[in-house]
């Protein structure tokens, strides 16, 4: 497999992780709205969402940070 495809796949996988985590966040928010509507333990639900959503986004950010950091940290292309 050539370098271009692999690079494209890497970018794709990182984007997929963001899609996944955004999906989880959307899901938690929708659960939160449901619990507010039904009045069942909205306080607990808000608490969980406040903790859970940032956790997922921090994880995704760390991955992205490493990905970008490693690319920037590469040596100058020495071999063709």
């Amino acid at each position: 497999m050539n370098k271009k495809t692999i690079e494209a796949l890497q970018v794709l996988s990182i984007s997929l992780i963001w899609v996944l985590f955004t999906g989880i966040a959307v899901w938690i928010v929708s659960l939160l709205r449901e619990s507010l509507r039904l009045h069942d333990a909205p306080d607990a639900s808000v608490g969980i969402s406040i903790i859970a959503i940032p956790v997922f986004f921090t994880l995704a950010s760390i991955l992205t940070y490493v990905f970008i950091g490693l690319r920037k940290g590469r040596k100058e292309e020495s071999e063709p």
């Binding site: 899901w27 449901e34 039904l38 069942d40």
Partner: peptide, 8 residues
């Protein structure tokens, strides 16, 4: 669980 879940 995804569409009708309850955080309670």
């Amino acid at each position: 669980l995804f569409f009708n879940g309850r955080l309670q």
